[in-house]
Design a protein around this nucleic acid. Sequence first.
DNA 1: AGCCATAATTGATCTCGATCAAAGTTCAGC
DNA 2: GCTGAACTTTGATCGAGATCAATTATGGCT
Lengths: 252, 252
Amino acid sequence: MASILTGQAVKAFNINCGECPIRHRAVCSRSDTDELALLESMKSYKTYEQGQTIVWAGDQMAFVGSVVKGVATLSQTMEDGRRQMVGLLLPSDFVGRPGRNLAPFDVVAATEVTLCRFQRAPFEKLLTSSPNIGPRLLQMTLDELDAAREWMLLLGRKTAREKIASLLAIIASREANIGLRSAAGKVRFDLPLSREAMADYLGLTLETVSRQMSTLKREGVIVLESKRVISVPNFANLLNETGDDTDGGMLT
Amino acid sequence: MASILTGQAVKAFNINCGECPIRHRAVCSRSDTDELALLESMKSYKTYEQGQTIVWAGDQMAFVGSVVKGVATLSQTMEDGRRQMVGLLLPSDFVGRPGRNLAPFDVVAATEVTLCRFQRAPFEKLLTSSPNIGPRLLQMTLDELDAAREWMLLLGRKTAREKIASLLAIIASREANIGLRSAAGKVRFDLPLSREAMADYLGLTLETVSRQMSTLKREGVIVLESKRVISVPNFANLLNETGDDTDGGMLT
DNA sequence: AGCCATAATTGATCTCGATCAAAGTTCAGC
DNA sequence: GCTGAACTTTGATCGAGATCAATTATGGCT
């Protein structure tokens, strides 16, 4: 299932990653014990503090891996400072591109972020020798592509209100691990982005984001328990504001 | 090289495709004679007339293949009719998604389009047996992803004028087979899209597209030889209007 | 050529979101 | 608990692009 949220919607590895608080999703099948061992020996962890740039666009990227903890963003910036986020990386999302030396976009830690990393070179060697990893990566990338294209609809055609509602619905469903169409009643979740980061993602200004949040709050669609903690009394009401097909949600 | 133009920037197959006016790009290496023969036996051609929908979003898609002639678009539509194009398929671009049964977006013939098609099922079997096709498809998909993300910047942050200039620059460079940074002098090319299709791609209305075209024409940046044939007296001037880094173009 | 349907241009006006500006919050650090 | 910096909200105004509405090409057809 592809999420509109991020190019990295699909989880990365299913190595039983010792110290990781999460289990990476299946790239290797459980029977690929050699691959598992090799991957296990390659991995290393690194934590980045909030606001820190993990990789600059155009720089070498020596590793691939996945987010263990925290939230990172993928974004690009124009010369005059206009910025557009092109992906949001939540825990278990994949980072990096096999076969690609240079990072095409900035990767920035939106909160404190811990990555589980694998050296790119040996990982790519493994890619050619294991019959399972390649197809899995292709499927992941196709999911990211779908997500990016869903976001193109949001950026090109949705109103500010619809954009905000869409973002909140997606974050809510991902954090709560519910499907977007399961229009359950009350949902409560943490918003891991500043108003400015939301604006960068939605193609808006931070003032417009703030105003729309206030409006949705005034109308009772959302409740701001604190600036970064939101609860949604009735998830169906939020979905109604996204502009997406009501009986289905925005996913294919 | 990824193009901002389309998710399908990278060419598809390098089969010496008998009747095809183009040569499909390398998926199989030349030595994979068995695979080549198999692919050759699977292929079939189909022509769609202008305006015809090749596949509807949500429908089964029994084939993969590539565009031989003409221009097709990938797009999605909201219930109320708002439409956003998410990819533009030019000759030699790949169509369809291995491993995916359902089409996520509408595929429409913008001009008369001829596809060279392969049944999806046998193609996927080939995918597992050949060591070359998989990695090639992964690289293609990564290029499409880069292109989609470049387009997100355009949709979210560029002005109408910059959007038009970007689109023209990309089509010009693709049709003329020149790099975006080769700021050569005069370029002349065919515009295979209606004003409405351009608007759908750029997240604008057709009136705004028309107005910006007129403005660029009035200022001498472009010359409208006919409504669908454009010449650019000085390509560098057009690039200057795209909002992208002047000494490099919009590609990584 | 002339006709007609479709595509494109141009004009007038409106509106949503941007911009400029000023308070109000929150929280880390002393 | 205070203080100050960063973040957020709110207000006033502006403007780019949308919308509504005519015209004006254009190209396919008889």
